[in-house]
């Protein structure tokens, strides 16, 4: 309808065809970095643990997982 009026249609920021790919890739990357976070947690003792390293690992993992979950929701039809 909007096209008929010569208006510029509003598109999603990322083409919808990319949602499945992005969901899979981002969640895989997120799970990988989550694994490295947990490996770090269990291989260090409370004397040798470095908060900065823990934070950087977990922030990377949560960014990947957060965006991955978003695209998973969108892929399954839950348009948030």
């Amino acid at each position: 309808m909007s096209k008929a009026l010569g208006l510029q249609p509003l598109d999603s920021p990322i083409a919808e065809g990319w949602y499945p790919t992005l969901a899979v890739l981002l969640i895989l990357a997120g799970l990988g970095s989550t694994a490295s976070f947990f490996v770090y947690e269990v291989t260090t003792t409370k004397f040798s643990r470095n908060l900065r390293r823990e934070l950087s690992l977990s922030i990377v993992a949560s960014l990947f997982l957060g965006f991955g979950l978003l695209f998973l929701l969108l892929w399954t039809g839950v348009y948030v």
Partner: peptide
């Protein structure tokens, strides 16, 4: 619209924070 993935990221980050507190 970027707020929605940011909320998800914060939620996941909270879980990691829980692990960090637990250890």
């Amino acid at each position: 619209i970027l707020w929605e993935p940011i909320y998800l990221t914060i939620a996941v980050m909270a879980a990691f924070g829980g692990v960090m507190a637990y250890v």
